[in-house]
Amino acid sequence: MFEAIAFYLFAFLTISMFYITVTTSQALHALTALAAGMIFISAFFFILGADFLGAIQIIVYTGAVMALYAFGMMFFDSTRDVKEKQGNKFIVVGMATVAAVLVVAIFSAPILSDNIVALYPSVGAGNTQEVGMVLFTKYLIPFEVAAVMLLVAMVAGIVLAGKKMDLSLTLMNKEEILEMNEDKNKKVLS
């Protein structure tokens, strides 16, 4: 009974938080509702007995949404409403309908073919150990691919943020480096 009460409570809270995130035109309201919704989702992991994933959900999303706040702080005056550009309403409604139908199709297709069977890892070990075992045996390749993707994203971020990344000091000879430095000084002076 407690599980049912907790489930409906947190389901209601999560959906209402994400509804606020989508509908409000206040940057601070949207971000706060997003953070709250993400944290409320962790309740479902706790209800299902996946303590480790629940705690990870809290830690990861507090950090992620905190970075969003930092961007919000830089781009908006967060105490004012954002003036939204209202496009063609028919396109918005049409796209939303198509997306909703697609989501339903994605989730109902496996049920129709009776393919959803929960794959429990080895029983007996603790929650954390089970996640580790599955990650390093059954899902090793997706895990490594995700790691490579993150590495690519990190390299791309450094390249985007760095300056003069197209020049390599090791490949240039001394005169070229001196010339470059002079150019830099000129720019500062002018």
Binding site: D51, F52, G54, A55, I56, I58, I59, T62, G63, N127
Partner: peptide, 15 residues
């Protein structure tokens, strides 16, 4: 007494 106590404490304190 959840078995991920440390993670939980650090996560919630971070919130």
């Amino acid at each position: 007494d959840i078995n991920v106590g440390i993670l939980y404490i650090l996560g919630v304190m971070a919130v």
